[in-house]
């Protein structure tokens, strides 16, 4: 899922304070799981902004609403009137949702309420960690199911680097060395012979390097 964190109140306020009627608009899927941008969080953010407006003595009407997903047209229908009735929208979706709305509502100013952080998993309640960078060519088959692209700070394909200490990354004692995990996993699977196979130069053209990516299924297009 996509993990995001709420922007600081001051930054949000600077973006929206010149509008009269603002909608805080939640996205109730990925960013609701990390309790940052779901419909409930949108409601809380709206009331915080209302309080802030009162403190600042600024007259601004802040509403809240939300849908299940801001990245697909079909979910927007119940919210069309609400969106049409405001001067600006503060979306608490990830960057995908904000952009999707900006394209969909060409005349409505759209602002991000979150910083979109990473593609990750829920390791435990309240703990989310990055697991994938969508590089476009998955190497998990060679690395025992642990991703060096997203989980090694240098995305080293033939690791670990010389900075790995006590199983931790040179960046932080709290960060596992991805290659330590890979080696433990290959050992557990009896596949350590694979460790000495050189990983080829990666084709990054499937990654960001190749430009914005698109995937089209002509057979299901309407």
């Amino acid at each position: 899922m996509i993990v995001g964190t709420q922007k600081p109140m001051e930054e949000i306020w600077e973006m929206i304070k010149s509008y009269k009627k603002v909608l805080v608009f939640g996205c109730n899927t990925c960013v609701a799981v990390c309790h940052q941008g779901g419909n409930k969080e949108a409601e809380i953010m709206a009331s915080m902004l209302n309080m802030h407006a009162a403190q600042e003595g600024v007259e601004i009407e802040i509403q809240h609403s939300g849908i299940e997903r801001q990245c697909e047209h079909e979910f927007f229908e119940p919210a069309e009137d609400t969106i049409a009735g405001v001067d600006a929208v503060l979306s608490t979706a990830c960057g995908i949702g904000v952009q999707f709305m900006a394209e969909k509502y060409a005349n409505t100013p759209l602002f991000p309420g979150l910083d979109t952080c990473f593609l990750g998993a829920v390791d435990e309640h309240g703990v989310f960690s990055e697991k994938c960078q969508a590089c476009g060519k998955c190497v998990l088959g060679e690395t025992g199911g642990i991703c060096p692209v997203s989980r090694c700070a240098k995305r080293i394909l033939n690791g670990p680097c010389g900075g790995s200490t006590n199983g931790k990354c040179e960046l932080s004692k709290d960060l596992d060395c991805a290659w330590q995990l890979i080696i433990e996993r290959l050992t557990a699977l009896g596949r350590m012979d694979d460790y000495e196979k050189l990983a080829e130069l990666k084709d990054w053209s499937f990654d960001r390097a190749g430009g914005p990516r698109k995937f089209i299924r002509e057979d299901i297009q309407v």
Binding site: R155, I156, L157, N158, C161, L198, A199, L201, K202
Partner: peptide, 12 residues
Amino acid sequence: NVHDLDSMQLIQ
């Protein structure tokens, strides 16, 4: 950071 190649691949 770049890390288009790693050190092993730079040797190659």
